[in-house]
């Protein structure tokens, strides 16, 4: 199963013009914990998917609402700069959403 199908909400957005934040909201605690525990769900693996430095990716669970936040520098350019593809950062959930979480 893909992460896209497991999560209830996958939203991405700028957190300021230089940072991208991805919120993964799950329907239950077990699903969130299962994804957190995956070998494939690490800062290094996510960094490779987005072409950013591994040390710059943070995985931040917020268990109260079954959410995992993933924060990283914007992959292409700062918001709206030459070379950017997504000024608001709203469609950056892939390739992460393709991750096999079965």
């Amino acid at each position: 199963m893909r992460l896209y199908d497991r999560a209830q909400v996958i939203r991405t957005k700028n957190a300021g013009p230089f940072t991208l934040t991805i919120d993964l909201v799950f329907g239950d605690q077990a699903s969130m914990q299962q994804v957190l525990a995956l070998d494939r769900f690490t800062p290094a693996q996510i960094a490779a998917l987005y072409g950013v430095e591994p040390s710059s990716v943070r995985i931040l669970p917020f268990a109260a609402i079954r959410t995992i936040k993933v924060t990283m520098p914007r992959p292409d350019a700062s918001s709206g700069a030459p070379g950017d593809r997504d000024v608001y950062g709203c469609q950056q959930h892939f390739p992460l959403a393709d991750l096999d979480v079965s």
Partner: peptide, 16 residues
């Protein structure tokens, strides 16, 4: 409660 909590971490780098 979920919609308000989710909004608390909207467009912020850290949920806490």
């Amino acid at each position: 409660p979920d919609s308000v909590a989710a909004h608390s971490l909207y467009e912020q780098p850290d949920p806490n």
